[in-house]
Design a protein around this nucleic acid. Structure first.
Lengths: 217, 217, 217, 217
DNA sequence: CATGAATGAGCGTTCATTCAT
DNA sequence: CATGAATGAACGCTCATTCAT
């Protein structure tokens, strides 16, 4: 009777470039709508944190958020759109912070601040951060999400350039490697249940500055 | 509520405690059976590599392997058991290599060899390696799989101790951090499609030895 | 190994202890839902009557009821729960009647009325009644269903006591035997296709009162 | 590749009237074959007794019997054929006994002996007897099995006629009712775990002779 | 707009049956 | 003949998605 095939996304209203169907279905214009989106995202976050990916169903999210499934689909065209929005919500703050830090003058303190921000971010909601990291890799998410990663790398790249590194290509790879190092250590620590941000930061700094050439100042 | 288990062929040699249900259902007695297991695992590997986790269904695995679902369930009691066996197949060789390298005398060459092994492993089948890493984290797999990770960390730890590092507790964390650094860089590189093992190895070495204290020889 | 339960709508009113999983999944809140439950049960009844236990699959029930499988699972957590509900629907009326008859003063007319009720019940939908009897014995159904049998025996027991029988233990066995006699004759008759309730009642009465001691009045 | 549909029986070798496919596939001519059939049947009996209908699969039967599934299908064309043969094995002895008792002169002792035989039969392997009774009703078994029931009824019928009852039609129904009474009481007792054959026999006799008209001698 | 009942393709899994060895 | 690996239709059940109210 209803002839959809819910495993493939096909949206009649392609608004953005690639996986357009994952864009929010309607831009909330009323404050009520805005808060509903936030409520749903927080519901999704809690389901993931408390019950894991196995329990992460649209119905579970709706229940946890205290709304109906129908409402969820008012604001998100598909389940993956929720995941994407959640990733953006979580990474957005971190990205903004990193971007502003990248503009600061001295490269070394900037880099240290970036590290601190990453550590703080991961330790705030470690289980959620870890799962979202996994999903970011697992799902064919949109450009927006890929952009988050690229923006982080770009910010780091700028810091490196200002720190005295030269060759453009090389520094982009270096930035990517740095990011991989930071994420690797911090994720693993979060997974092991570490909570001491200062200690964790110290270890990450050691890795980062050990990796960078001596001429970085 | 799954309500019958008609296969009373519980493996007589239950080795791991908890997820015993994931142990192989029967040990193959005919020669053709032995190869069937391998064929199924390779089918699973190809589904994962070529179509990703979304397409990773038991029927897809069976089709790709050229056998029937029934045959899959002759040897694996559940889908997760296939994943587990695949992880063991893939990580097994790496672990064996690392273990033997850990026994080699000079710590620095040992560590370099470990890095080379990790890089080679990841670059052989990058997509598969990455997905299996994710699944290893995502699934409640058996002790055997957890042991793989622990064995790697232990091997690294021994190298560190022989390399002159002292405080036991600290070195365990250092080993974990090193592993996270290696995995982080190599995974990200594999995901970006890098294929130059030598260049990748060089970068990982820089990160590892930059992280280690200067007294490591 | 069934490995997710995405419906966290556990009924707030869990009434029976053990097979709680067989309790209705949700209490219908919209009027249409109430009728859906009835429609599903009648679909199940017709599948059983017309095609027997072999054809009694959840999809067959859904088709016969004119709904989707999904709808079936909105209200019943498992196939057995449908069977259980059907048994309760069918036996419920009989039990209520028997209970009220057990309260009537004169034991002999009460007993005769009970017999008539059993006969009428069995002849109304003989095939269904027979199959449900078998399933009641075959399946590990909940306390509620076991209670039905016990309630019938208890009701009979009370009639016997009021009829002048003494020894408690003995009369419980007598009640069980009477029930077995009634069920045996009536089931067999239903299976043979008998439709004459009056004639059947006469034969059952002969068996019952022939079995009871002469002092029963 | 193999185009069978294992839920419908279609046998190329129709030897007997109705569900011919359920006849033994080959009449065992060697003693080894004869004993294999017996071994398989006993395996089936034990699976049913110890693990119930849920566990009653052809593989389970083969395992319990210590033979391979292939061997089972050498002697039985389908699973139901095993069930049917088991019913015949179990009821055969009882039927033979009843038949010989029916030939004895005095009707009352003959009837008492029949009752004793039924009780003894049920108490020997109560769980098995009960399950086979259920299956006899549940499955579309062959004429042979239906004949068992008819033969029992016929034997009873002869006893009744010799006991002084007249009207032919009526006595056939009476025989059926008697059988239903006996089976009803004895089955229920077996299910409750009763083991006292003498006491059970006494109750069944009371029911039977209470049901028969006084002129039966 | 919100609700939640309804949908159905698809999943994991079973097991009666076949057939190469 | 015996074996047991292989088969695949069918089952119970899930859950992303739709739509009548």
């Amino acid at each position: 009777m209803s002839n959809h095939s819910h495993h493939e996304l096909a949206s009649p209203l392609t608004r953005s470039a690639r996986p357009a169907a994952l864009n929010p279905r309607k831009s909330p214009r009323q404050s009520r709508a805005t808060s509903t989106v936030a409520i749903i995202l927080e519901g999704a976050a809690r389901v993931l944190e408390e019950s894991g990916l196995r329990a992460y169903s649209t119905n579970a999210v709706a229940n946890r958020a205290g709304v109906s499934v129908g409402s969820v689909y008012q604001y998100f065209p598909a389940k993956e759109a929720i995941t994407r929005a959640l990733i953006q919500r979580e990474t957005g703050a971190l990205l903004a912070e990193v971007k502003s830090l990248a503009a600061v003058n001295s490269p070394r303190p900037a880099l240290e601040a970036v590290i601190d921000a990453c550590v703080a971010h991961q330790l705030r909601r470690p289980a959620l951060a870890r799962i979202l990291d996994l999903e970011e890799a697992r799902l064919p998410l949109g450009d927006d999400v890929a952009d988050l990663g690229r923006a982080l790398a770009t910010a780091l790249h700028q810091i490196l350039l200002r720190g005295g590194l030269r060759d453009e290509d090389a520094t982009l790879v270096v930035a990517a490697d740095l990011l991989a190092i930071i994420k690797g250590i911090v994720d693993a620590a979060g997974q092991r249940g570490e909570t001491d941000a200062a200690a964790l930061s110290r270890r990450v700094r050691r890795a980062v500055f050990g990796f960078l050439p001596a001429e970085f100042y």
